[in-house]
Design a protein around this nucleic acid. Structure first.
Lengths: 235, 235
DNA sequence: GGTGTAAGGTCAACCCTGTTGGCATAAGGC
DNA sequence: GCCTTATGCCAACAGGGTTGACCTTACACC
C-alpha cells in the first residue's frame, strides 16, 4: 500500500502497467480531466480512473495519498493552465482583467473538474505562482501593501467563487441536459404576478440573463474599485 | 420504495417510527442540519440521518426522491433563515446590504450545510422568495428593468459564491483543526523571497487577512456600482 | 363503530465507493 | 549480472445510496 507516496521529482523506476502504459502524476491528472468530462463531476472514481489508465485502482495510491490529494492536483493543473494562457503587458488594469478572465476561462473549460476543485485552496506550486503574480501586478501598480493584499484577496476569492458557481451550472447543464436553465424558463416564467410581481415583470429579461456569468460584471466592479484606491493612494 | 414522494402539503397519515418520532420534511431537514454540524459536510449519510431520526434509512425516500433532493431542501432552509433574519427599511442601499449580509450569515451559520448547497440553484419556494425580494428592492429604487436584472444577477451569484467559498474554509477549519489557515502561516510565510518576492513582502499582511471573508468588500463594490447606475438612470 | 385501503415504516439485499495489506515482478544502481 | 526495493496487482474491508417486498396501522367511508 502507499505508506509513502514518492514525490514526482524523485521518481526513478518507471514500471509499465499491465496494459503497457507508463504512469506519471501528469498523465494521471490529464486522464482524470478526461474522465471528469466524460462521466461528470461525480464520475471520477478510483476504479474508473484506474480503468481509464489501464491500471489497478490501488496503483493510484503510489502517486497520491488519496482521492483528495488527486483532486487538489487537478485544481492546480487548472491554475497552471490559467497562468499559461496569460501574458503580462505591464498595464495593471489590463493585466488584472486578463488574468481574472484566464482563471475563469481555465476553470470553465473543465466545468466538472472546476466543481470539484474551485472552492478549495490547494497550496500547490501553480496556485502559489498565481498568487505571486496577482500581488506583483497590484504592488507594481503602486498600491500600498495593505491595500494590495485586500484587493488581492477579493480578486482571487471572487474569481474562484464565480468559477465554482458558473462551473456548477455549466456542468449541470452538460450532465442533465440543461435542467437548470430550463428551470428559469419553466418555473420562474410561470409564477403568478400577484404573489411574485417583480419576477413576473422581469421574467423575459431573467431568462435571457441567468444562463450567462455575472463574473465579468463583478470583475469590472473590482477593477473600478481598485482604480479608485490607486487614485487615493497617489494623492 | 418511494415510487412517488408525497408532497408535504398532501401528507395525511402520520405514522410514528419504531422509535416513536413522527417525521416531517421540516424535522428531517432540521435533523440533517444537526448531523451536518456534528459530523462534517461529508458526514451526512442516509444511514446516519436515519439513525439520528430513529428511523430506517429507506424511510427518507418517502419524503425525498434521494439524497440530492434532500440536499436542495437543506439549501432552501438556509435561504428561508436568511430572509427571516432580515427586515425592510425602504432604503434600497441599506436593504440590499442587510439582505446580502443576512444570506452570507445564514449560510456561514451552518458551514457544513453551506458547502453542500451554496453552489446550487434549488428552484424551491424560499429561494424564489429571496429572488423576488431582491428584484423588488432594485426596481423599487428606480432602476430600469434591464439594469435591475443585471445587478440582481451579480448580487445573488456573488452572495452565494462567497458563501460557498467562505463556508468551505470555515467547515474545513472546524473539521481539520484549521489546516487551511495554518497553510497560510506555514507554507506561504516560508517562501523564499527571491522566487516569490511579492508574497514574501506581504506575508504578514496575508496571514492576517486571508482567514477573513472578502465578501463585505465585494458587497460594497456592488453597492457602489449600483448607486452609480442609479445616478445615471436618474439623469 | 367496523372495515378496507394504501401510506408509510422496515428489512434485506444490490452494486458502488475509497482504501489497505500482502504479494509478485522488474527497473536500475552497483 | 545481481540485489534491492519501487511499483504494479489482487483480494478484501467497511461503509455509501438506493430499491423491492413486506408489514402495520392511520384514516376515509359507510
Amino acid at each position: 500500500m502507499a505508506k509513502q507516496v514518492v514525490p514526482e521529482g524523485a521518481r526513478q523506476r518507471r514500471r509499465p502497467t499491465r496494459a503497457g502504459t507508463v504512469l506519471s502524476e501528469e498523465m494521471i491528472v490529464h486522464t482524470a480531466l478526461r474522465v471528469l468530462r466524460e462521466h461528470g463531476s461525480a464520475g471520477l472514481t478510483a476504479r474508473r480512473l484506474g480503468a481509464a489508465l489501464g491500471a489497478d485502482p490501488s496503483t493510484l495510491y503510489r502517486y497520491f495519498a488519496g482521492m483528495d490529494e488527486l483532486t487538489r492536483a487537478i485544481g492546480d493543473e487548472l491554475m497552471g493552465r490559467a497562468l499559461a494562457g496569460w501574458t503580462a503587458s505591464g498595464e495593471w488594469r489590463a493585466d488584472l482583467r486578463a488574468l481574472g478572465r484566464a482563471i475563469h476561462a481555465a476553470y470553465l473549460a473543465h466545468p466538472q473538474a472546476a466543481v470539484l476543485t474551485a472552492s478549495r485552496v490547494t497550496g500547490r506550486p501553480r496556485e502559489i505562482a498565481v498568487d505571486e503574480t496577482i500581488l506583483g501586478i497590484l504592488r507594481g501598480a503602486g498600491l500600498p501593501d495593505p491595500v494590495a493584499v485586500r484587493v488581492y484577496h477579493a480578486f482571487i476569492d471572487q474569481s474562484l467563487a464565480f468559477a465554482a458557481l458558473d462551473a456548477g451550472s455549466l456542468a449541470l447543464a452538460d450532465e442533465t441536459r440543461a435542467v437548470d436553465e430550463e428551470m428559469w424558463r419553466s418555473t420562474y416564467a410561470h409564477l403568478p404576478a400577484d404573489s411574485h410581481p417583480n419576477i413576473a415583470a422581469t421574467a423575459q429579461l431573467l431568462a435571457r440573463r441567468m444562463p450567462h456569468s455575472a463574473y465579468p460584471a463583478a470583475l469590472e466592479m473590482l477593477l473600478e474599485h481598485t482604480a479608485a484606491q490607486l487614485a487615493r493612494a497617489g494623492e
